[in-house]
Write a protein that binds this DNA or RNA. Structure first.
Lengths: 345, 345
DNA sequence: GGTTTTTATGTTAACGTTAACATTATAGTA
DNA sequence: TACTATAATGTTAACGTTAACATAAAAACC
């Protein structure tokens, strides 16, 4: 069983130095054309594969980007990863994928591992359970560029790419208000996560600007999952009839799905009895019994821009820290009350 | 701006040798407890992060697995990746994720890159457009363990983990036959992909065993996407009435969705006029106007088992080559004709 | 107390590559 | 032709770690 072929062996085969082999294979100048050809063909014939590990060690650069994702099965992330991969691939970088499973402990470990593997930069969407930023700061102390995407951390001097959560939440809430609803509930995300905070603020801002009072009883933290949406909606439905909301703004589509189930199980109609809107345009949104009005997040675009920004930081250490906002789009379906009587509001 | 801290600097700080630092930090025996403590605390204080690249070079092992996925947004893959990540994480390995985008050229490049990055093994689900196996064989020549998952390549001496495509296709076809349908069509996958071939064979086998003749006009290659299913179904609907199928077995759910749209747009009912079944239990399957009967693929399990098998190959070079089949499950909904009259067949 | 065993630490070389400098061959110039 | 500029190739050291062997110190034995 032959061992792996190295540049040294190719050099010996040709009776030349390793350096000439290296130069020939890396398209460097000052190599005779004939030599270069011989080297290339001999290397191929011998099955030589350059050792990127050795190269990384001497160059102090791995052409690898670390990626930390909280929950890869959320429909947003596969799309975002595709955008990231596209940008990275185009620039000749590979991706090390790690999964925090929404656990801050695991996220921290992943960051340490990535630093240890000497990635050139890190792309991260924070876990739900993160409470302090020490692990991010320790990465930054290593002068390792870090770019947040979707779920951001502000004020620690890192770039961030996300959608305009505040504006989007405000816009979709305002849309409900236009329908004439006055008692509007919000199923909120965890306040520890930037998008949770931004969306609740957008909701409140829309209510304020339209002269509607905010009833704290109608704001319930439900988290990002269907079960939380279901539970929270049940609580709302247990309020006395006159306090119950006419419409609901859910922090994301899964939470909205849960809430929709709760509404239907209580024998109420959507949107006639209670209107509801989501956030994220999950693939299931348009297939619900009453198609869900929601916000479409350009996940691919977010991923791509985040990767591009990270690459810029990697290749130019004076690249300015930026907070990039990608515009989202409201997708009007029926659950808000539009079309239900045959015409759009 | 301080440079990165190395073991050498920690050693100098303490006035001891690098080797003692290395031993202390790696929990090796024969280090005085006091020395070990001092090393660990000093390393932490100085912000030392071990360099895995250097370690990989000397150990000739990277604790990294290469992953090649054809289309990360297919709902199967995020789940499978989660399983892979789980197994890899548990064993202390990281994942380099590459995306072939169903393109064999790009897949080949990804494999070369992974070999160059000295991954310890490769997990791959082949691209649709792959025609020859040279790139896989070149990986195997490097003694790099490779395990196929979901879409397999047989006969080249690599392990493979997939669901029982043949049996599952046979089972779901037989289910349609039990309903009494005799003219059954198949929208097939590309025959270049193992699962495409296995499913068509399962379909034919079920027809055979139940004494039904196979009409080649009713077998159309539609590929894995919605558009192909739609187009193919239109072709079937252009056949003379007496030749049109009573039921359709689609190669996967997206193809089935496309076909369902074509059926409905032609004013036909599902399943009364044409019954249909899919394959993969896409998240949308139960939300269709007529919920789709399909095969549930345990994607997480497939990913996890594939990763485990690869790890076994990595850690024991005599590990036997295996073809592992994960059992799938038929999910009965309404599109096959069950429940449509209020009772299950 | 001296010899052997065990434990703790140090030294050297190696992993496979490239940068930087050194040398040799070739071409160009006067 | 001799001298210089340029192109092609070679040599050495370095990247940060660990294995393998070497040595020194401490403990155990008779």
């Amino acid at each position: 069983m032959r061992k792996r072929i190295t540049a040294k062996q190719v050099a010996e085969e040709l009776g030349i130095s390793i350096m000439t082999v290296s130069r020939a294979l890396n398209n460097r100048p000052n190599v005779d054309d004939k030599t270069r050809e011989k080297v290339i063909s001999t290397a191929r014939r011998m099955g030589y594969v350059p050792d990127h590990i050795a190269k990384s060690l001497v160059l102090q650069k791995t052409f690898t980007i670390g990626l930390v994702v909280p929950e890869i099965t959320h429909s947003f992330f596969p799309e975002a990863i595709r955008g990231i991969e596209e940008a990275a691939y185009g620039a000749g970088y590979q991706l090390i994928l790690t999964h925090s499973a929404e656990d801050s402990e695991r996220e921290n470990k992943a960051l340490q591992t990535l630093a240890s593997k000497r990635v050139d930069g890190i792309l991260i969407s924070t876990a739900e359970s993160v409470t302090d930023y020490e692990s991010y700061e320790s990465i930054m102390r290593l002068k390792l560029p870090i770019v947040f995407f979707d779920r951001c951390v502000y004020g620690i001097g890192a770039s961030c790419v996300s959608i305009d959560d505040f504006e989007s939440a405000k816009k979709i809430t305002a849309h409900l208000i236009q329908h004439g609803y006055k008692k509007i509930a919000h199923l909120s995300g965890p306040s520890s996560v930037s998008i949770g905070r931004a969306r609740i603020e957008g909701f409140k801002n829309a209510m304020d600007e339209n002269g509607l009072s905010i009833n704290d009883e109608l704001i319930i933290e439900s988290g990002f999952h269907e079960a939380g949406g279901y539970e929270s909606m049940l609580k709302l439905l247990q309020l006395p009839k006159e306090k119950q909301p006419q419409a609901v703004v859910a922090v994301n589509d899964p939470a909205a799905f849960g809430a929709m189930n709760a509404i239907l199980e209580n024998g109420l109609r959507i949107p006639e009895d209670i209107a509801i809107v989501g956030f994220s345009d999950d693939i299931r949104a348009e297939l619900m019994p009453t198609p869900l009005t929601t916000i479409r997040q350009p996940a691919y675009e977010v991923g791509k821009r985040a990767a591009q920004k990270l690459l810029a930081h990697i290749e130019n250490k004076d690249e300015i820290i930026d907070e990039i906002i990608i515009k989202s789009e409201i997708v009007i379906r029926e659950s808000c009350g539009c079309y239900s009587d045959g015409k759009k509001i």
